[in-house]
Simulated assay, not measured.
Amino acid sequence: MANHCISRILVAVLTATSIGTAVPASANTEVETAELLIKLVQVGRGVLSENQAIINDSSKGEKGFTGDFVANQVIERFRKATKIDLSRPATVPQGPLFLAMVESEKEVIDEAQPVINKQGVGFKGMIPAVFARKSGERFFRKTGIRVKLTSTDYRYPGNRPDDFEAEVLRLFADTRHPKGQPYSRTTMLDGRPVLRMMDPEYAATTCLSCHGNPKGDRDVTGAKKEGWHEGDLAGAISIVIPMK
């Protein structure tokens, strides 16, 4: 699908549908929705990770790494992973909600164009973690659903785990917990019933240049490396969906 078609779909659906804080009514549907929103975050971060060399190429100006390009990639990869085609959002009841996430990811990249396309500058700071954080912030403003990266080794203060997240991170770190298995629970938050889900993330080879060894050395961002090894628990994607 051409990029301009994707933009038209996003605008049309999000304009025609008032998302607000509406979420599916049943707990089972909310669990499925949380899982699929997490998949959208993972897909978007994957696009950013694969294109770091392009983003940080100091010799090029306009790179073509636009919000439309990212939205196109996310929709296509999400379709391959889930069989849900967001170019036809009416086929699933959560279509407008999922497109709100795609739109949030698109807006983050569109806003970063002056930095991404600046010649003479190598590292641009638009890394997958920053992309996910900013996309989650925009998505929350659109929907009232919180999506957050968190870790015991958090760097950004907003990624600090709350009590629930710290408890689940300890669960994920327990060798008795099946690797890769998410955790969800209905609970109360700020006096309201919510579904909370966390999906564990593990250090990949691409993570180690910033988070690996030597522990304590400064990485390209200026932060201290954590000394992770491939396969170590890196943290989790945390999501909070208000329930009716």
Rank of each mutant, 00 (worst) to 15 (best):
R192V: 06
A236I: 00
V108Y: 09
E137A: 10
T66V: 07
V43S: 03
T150N: 05
A81M: 05
G64H: 06
K106S: 09
S135H: 03
L233S: 01
I127Y: 09
E165W: 01
G136L: 07
S18D: 12
S87Y: 13
L86F: 13
F98Q: 10
S209M: 03
E111K: 15
I75H: 07
L10C: 06
K60M: 12
P178M: 08
G216V: 03
E32G: 06
L171V: 14
C5R: 15
G235K: 01
G180V: 02
K224P: 00
V130M: 09
D68A: 15
V121Y: 08
R185E: 15
T33L: 15
N213D: 08
P200I: 02
E167Y: 03
T152Q: 14
I19S: 08
R176M: 03
D153R: 11
M101E: 11
D219W: 00
Y156L: 05
E201L: 11
G212K: 00
E107H: 13
V130T: 09
A53V: 13
L37Q: 05
A25I: 11
M101L: 15
P193N: 04
A25E: 10
I75V: 15
Y202T: 07
P96Q: 12
G235P: 01
Q113K: 12
L10G: 05
T17W: 11
V102C: 09
I54Y: 04
R77P: 04
P193M: 03
Y154V: 01
G216K: 00
S49Y: 01
K83D: 09
K39W: 03
E167S: 14
L208K: 02
V121M: 09
L149K: 05
R176P: 01
T91C: 04
S151L: 03
I145P: 01
R155K: 15
S26L: 12
P24D: 02
G235C: 00
R185T: 10
I241S: 00
S184Q: 09
I55R: 04
M243T: 00
K118V: 08
G46S: 10
P157D: 05
V74W: 14
F140G: 01
V220G: 00
R218K: 13
K80F: 13
A25S: 14
A203L: 02
R196S: 05
V115A: 08
A22M: 10
A53M: 14
V41P: 02
S104H: 13
E35P: 00
E111G: 07
T82E: 12
E137C: 04
G180I: 03
D68N: 14
D199A: 05
I241C: 00
P178R: 09
R192A: 11
V70S: 09
V92Q: 11
